[in-house]
Design a binder for these strands. Sequence first.
RNA 1: GGACGCUUAGCUCAGCUGGUAGAGCAUCUGACUCUUAAUCAGAGGGUCGCGGGUUCGAAUCCCGCAGCGUCUACCA
Length: 504
Amino acid sequence: MPQEGSSPVPADAHSLPQEREQRIAKARKLAELGRAPYGRAFARTGTLAEVRAAFEPGRVVRVAGRLMTIRNMGKSVFADLRDGTDRFQVFASRQQMGEEPYDVFKLLDTGDHIGVEGELMLTRTGEQTVRVDKWTMLSKALLPLPEKWHGIKDPEARYRRRYLDLISNPEVRARFDLRSRIVRELRSFLWSRGYTEVETPMMQPAPGGALARPFETHYSALNASMYLRIAPELYLKRLLVGGYDRVFELNRNFRNEGLSKTHNPEFTMLEAYEAYSDMRGMMRLVQDMILHVARTVKPEGPLEFGSGDQRVDMAPPWREAAYRDLIVEKMGPDWYELDRARAGERAAALGLDIAPQMDLSEITHEVYEKAIEKTLMAPTFVTRLPREFVPLARTCEDDESVVDVYELVIQGKEISPGYSELNDPLDQRRRFEAQVGKERHRMDEDFLAALEQSMPPAGGMGLGVDRLVMILAGSEAIRDVILFPQLRQKPEAVPDAAAGTGER
RNA sequence: GGACGCUUAGCUCAGCUGGUAGAGCAUCUGACUCUUAAUCAGAGGGUCGCGGGUUCGAAUCCCGCAGCGUCUACCA
């Protein structure tokens, strides 16, 4: 296995010509000395945080963690151990441990995992410390840690090797812990409201529930094309038909579209449906839910998130504004009397790109999306959207030209749409047929059959979980709230994967 | 998808108008029994993203490619 000095070095070893070899040699040496470099379970007195909380000098404890720093003083060594909860200093001395175990201890490198048994003590400077009596090798690190002071900064390395980002940037770990809490609170809120969580297919024969390009895959056993879902909507509605009055799913959707600061091809979506409710009921639900989560994240003080011009005040009541009113507010009371040319000029004056083929309602929508929506910082329910932009939604009772929908905008981002769901199967069929012409989506006959079985009137809502986390965490990029964001594949894998195998 | 920018040691970064590459941390050797970015002395480590071109000579200039970033486009 070891390469002869004269034989060519494996290509991937170039990246770490020396240190990795040294660490492998140390692992071998440890093994020779009877200390397996990769250990098994280690019974701990508790986590480092627990041991710190119950600190008592003289008490014997067993702790484990990753060695983060080592300060070698000759006949004694101070080192910092870290686990998922805390950092804790350990102190090893030749006098205490005996010559041989102490010398072996000095084979350790930063990055290694070890288990330690010994008495708790206070150093002269008052730092809580474990004095090592015995220690166990748990796992030898062959690769060095990122720079201890500056950490890892290169964005590409941070995303591709997120484990290093998590090790060296504590605020990153804190942000993902926050995400976990948010997700948990969303669930517990809905459970407390009597909702049942379900899981519906992610692989679907006919992707529906939204207008988006799907990912396509192939199911060999059936020799059939399948699609990763773009939304769970049509399955959740089947469950309304099946008698679930309150149902939600919190899981991944996939859309075959571009990457951006606010778009990842797989993203986490919450969808909830409530029988006998409507869009108004869902407005109340989503407001209560987001306020509940925000309060959990920030238990006291004003409900403000983000900073600078992205600062958001979530304090209720949240504004509700009809689409048309927002337009008039921005473009003047005569906007809807303008002809196409005048409207185009006025929109262009705002710096918008108005293409010649755009009609009045398209120009208006461009104004909404580019000049209005982005400026809505505080939570705003935009209602009564023009039906041509939400073709599958139910129209308002008092005005057939607008739909009974809300779109919740926070910090200029669409966070949550809500609907009074369509339950007329023949109407739904007509609208699907109109869509199938434009999009290449297949008609979901099975779903239409379910509707024909009678679906109760219902309110439905969606919530972009990643974006909610962005707002509550004060992150400006979706990649900062997704552990492993989608990146292009590199021709070569991350360094060292194949080193030593003799391949490549 | 388009425009612009970046890519130098394991990590964080210098490197001028082209003259054969540096620092700190990490690593190795030595000293050191209360340190905490330990300290002190010494050493090793680089296909300068990849491929081509210009030139006596390229990390540096030119072209192509890749990855990443920013803005932009589609979308939640």
